[in-house]
C-alpha cells in the first residue's frame, strides 16, 4: 500500500478511536458549544452601530476557538498519549511510513474540526439568529482560514506534546495556552476592542487571534469591522501570520519529535 493509502487507513482508525471515547466527545468536543451557549445567552445585547448582536460575535469567535481545541488540544494530548501507551513504539517497529502517521492525524483533525465548526454554527443559527453566508467568496475565506488554522495549530500541538512528561499531565500543559489565549484573543471577551491594546498586542503574535478574526470576517456583516482593533478584516496579515506559524510549527516538530518517552 502507498503512504497515502496507509495514511487514509490510519485516518479512519483515528476517527473511530476518537469518537468512541465517549467522555472525550462529551466533555472536550462539546465544551466550546457549551461555553458558546452560556456566553451567547449572558451577553445578548445588540451592537447597533456594527449591525450585529453580541451572541453573533461570540458565535463567530468561538468557531475559531473550536478549531484550536480540535487541532491543538486533540494532538497535544493525543500524541503524548500515543507516546506513552505504546502506539508510537509499535508503529516504529512496523514498515508503516512515518508520514502515514501524521497524515492519519491530519485526517482526524480535519474531520473533527469540521464537525466542531458545524456544531458551533448549528448553535449560532438555532439560538442566536446567525445567518450563514451565501456569497462564495466568504466560503473561500472560510476555507483558507480553516486550513491554515488547522495546520498551524496541529503542528504546534504535536510540538507541544513533547512538553508533557506523561499523558496525564498533557491536558494541563495544553490548557494553559488554550485558555490564556482565549481571554486575550477576543473569544471569551467580545468585542476585541474592549480588551487592553497591549493584551491584544501579545495575542497578535499567536494564531488564535487571527483565526477568530478571519472567522468573524466570514460570518459577520462587513459593518462589524468597526469592532476590530484595526477597523478592517486584515486578510493579508491573517494569512501571513498563520502561514508563518505553519512554518515555525513544522520546524518545531522536526526538531523535537520523539517516538518514545525515554
Amino acid at each position: 500500500m502507498s503512504t497515502v493509502a496507509i495514511g487514509a487507513a490510519r485516518g479512519r482508525l483515528e476517527l473511530r478511536e476518537f469518537f468512541r471515547r465517549k467522555e472525550a466527545v462529551v466533555f472536550t468536543f462539546s465544551l466550546p458549544a457549551f461555553i458558546l451557549v452560556l456566553l451567547g445567552s449572558v451577553f445578548s445585547g445588540d451592537m447597533v452601530d456594527a449591525g450585529v448582536s453580541m451572541s453573533q460575535l461570540f458565535t463567530a469567535s468561538m468557531v475559531g476557538a473550536g478549531i484550536l481545541s480540535t487541532s491543538f488540544i486533540t494532538l497535544g494530548v493525543g500524541v503524548a498519549t500515543d507516546r506513552e501507551d505504546g502506539t508510537l513504539k509499535r508503529l516504529r517497529g512496523t514498515p508503516m511510513p512515518a508520514a502515514a502517521y501524521f497524515l492519519g492525524k491530519l485526517v482526524l483533525v480535519a474531520v473533527a474540526s469540521l464537525a466542531e465548526v458545524a456544531l458551533l454554527l448549528a448553535v449560532g443559527v438555532l439560538l442566536f439568529d446567525v445567518e450563514l453566508p451565501t456569497d462564495p467568496a466568504r466560503w473561500l475565506t472560510f476555507a483558507w482560514v480553516f486550513a491554515l488554522g488547522v495546520v498551524s495549530c496541529s503542528l504546534l500541538g504535536i510540538a507541544a506534546s513533547g512538553l508533557a512528561k506523561s499523558s496525564r499531565s498533557a491536558p494541563a500543559v495544553m490548557n494553559l495556552p488554550y485558555i490564556g489565549l482565549q481571554f486575550i484573543s477576543g473569544v471569551f471577551i467580545n468585542p476585541i476592542v474592549a480588551l487592553p491594546a497591549a493584551m491584544v498586542g501579545v495575542a497578535s503574535f499567536f494564531p488564535l487571534k487571527w483565526i477568530c478574526q478571519g472567522m468573524r470576517s466570514v460570518f459577520l456583516p462587513d459593518g462589524a469591522t468597526a469592532l476590530e482593533m484595526a477597523g478592517a478584516w486584515e486578510h493579508g496579515l491573517t494569512a501571513l501570520v498563520l502561514g508563518a506559524w505553519c512554518v515555525v510549527g513544522l520546524a518545531l516538530c522536526l526538531a523535537t519529535f520523539r517516538w518514545t518517552n525515554k
Binding site: 482508525l13 473511530r16 471515547r21 500515543d82 505504546g86 502506539t87 513504539k89 509499535r90
Partner: peptide
C-alpha cells in the same frame, strides 16, 4: 511489545 495499552478503543 511487553506493556503496550494502545488501540484500547479498537
Amino acid at each position: 511489545l511487553q506493556s503496550a495499552t494502545d488501540a484500547a478503543e479498537l
